[in-house]
């Protein structure tokens, strides 16, 4: 074997190991959670509130809370994010102003999640007087997801062939009709995928909601957007660091983590299925 081939072989081995590490890490995490958590999961675990100082019972309030928080987050972040992406990609003249906005978005993406939490506490909870609530927590999560949604939506819009826009405008459509009837439908699969991916990451965040929407314990399901809720990631954090009996609740912690992971996987799977469905329908 000559030198070039040896170098190439080494290169491939390195690349393959890198890919392998990735896959292994995921497999180990999943196995870890499943093997330790599945015993905790039962119908009552999913449908009851925690009891006995959270050492027994289920996690229904946490599931409901996380779903509510994400609902608010998506209701805010998706329209605002997609609208921003449309403006940046379709309307704005590409100049200094747009560059500054983009810089802002990129920096927003780099802001640590705990800072979003503090911002949410100061702005939504205190200044806007929302208190610790689903609304404040959801808005904070939505804000954090915004850069991801803008980024993926812009990518999706960029991937729509320019020839579609020209064909539409050439037929006497206005710019808005072109965007609404041709560009957005074509970009839709990409936008939805990005939205769900961003959201599923937000679902697992603790820092942004611990001051703004989630509380240690509340057995009641929320009655309005101004109620505080329990949430899956925060519940894990609480059980693992501040519970009354940390060792005894280990199975509950793993069980909760498993539910969270399944929720996130489920959302990602949903995104993939939705995208292939739409793609097939449009035969792209």
């Amino acid at each position: 074997m000559n030198r070039r081939n040896i170098v190439q072989t080494i290169g491939f081995v390195l690349l393959r190991s890198a890919a392998l590490i990735n896959g292994t890490a995921l497999a180990v995490i999943v196995w870890f959670m499943v093997s330790r958590g599945w015993r905790a999961i039962s119908w009552s675990f999913l449908t009851q509130a925690p009891t006995d100082s959270m050492t027994r019972g289920g996690i229904l309030p946490c599931i409901v809370g996380t779903v509510c928080l994400m609902g608010i987050a998506v209701a805010v972040a998706l329209p605002v994010g997609v609208a921003s992406a449309i403006y940046l990609n379709e309307y704005a003249a590409q100049g200094t102003f747009v560059r500054i906005i983009r810089l802002g978005i990129n920096n927003l993406a780099g802001v640590p999640s705990v800072v979003f939490g503090l911002f949410g506490l100061a702005f939504f909870c205190i200044i806007l007087k929302m208190g610790v609530s689903i609304l404040a927590g959801g808005l904070t999560l939505g804000l954090m997801t915004l850069p991801v949604i803008i980024g993926t939506s812009e990518e999706a819009l960029k991937s729509v062939p320019q020839t579609y826009r020209e064909a539409s405008l050439g037929l006497g459509a206005t710019k808005w009709q072109t965007i609404y009837r041709v560009v957005l439908p074509s970009a839709f699969p990409g936008i939805i995928t990005g939205g769900i991916l961003g959201l599923s990451r937000a679902a697992g965040e603790t820092a942004p909601i611990m001051y703004t929407g989630a509380v240690f314990f509340t057995p009641d399901l929320p009655g309005s957007l101004f109620d505080a809720v329990m949430a899956l990631p925060y519940h894990i954090y609480v059980l693992a660091t501040a519970g009354t009996n940390i060792a005894a609740t280990r199975p509950l912690q793993y069980g909760t983590a498993l539910v969270l992971i399944l929720l996130v996987f489920g959302m990602n799977l949903g995104a993939i299925i939705l995208r292939t469905r739409i793609r097939k329908k449009m035969r792209l």
């Binding site: 062939p161 020839t163 064909a167 539409s168 006497g172 009837r181 449009m282 035969r283």
Partner: peptide, 27 residues
């Protein structure tokens, strides 16, 4: 609307044949 255009590369919309033709009328 008065001056139509046909491009070098065929560029139908990813819609049905009917909707492609109906598009200009609808907009």
């Amino acid at each position: 609307r008065r001056v139509g255009m046909v491009f070098q590369k065929p560029n139908p919309f990813p819609k049905t044949i009917f909707e492609n033709i109906a598009y200009g009328m609808r907009v």
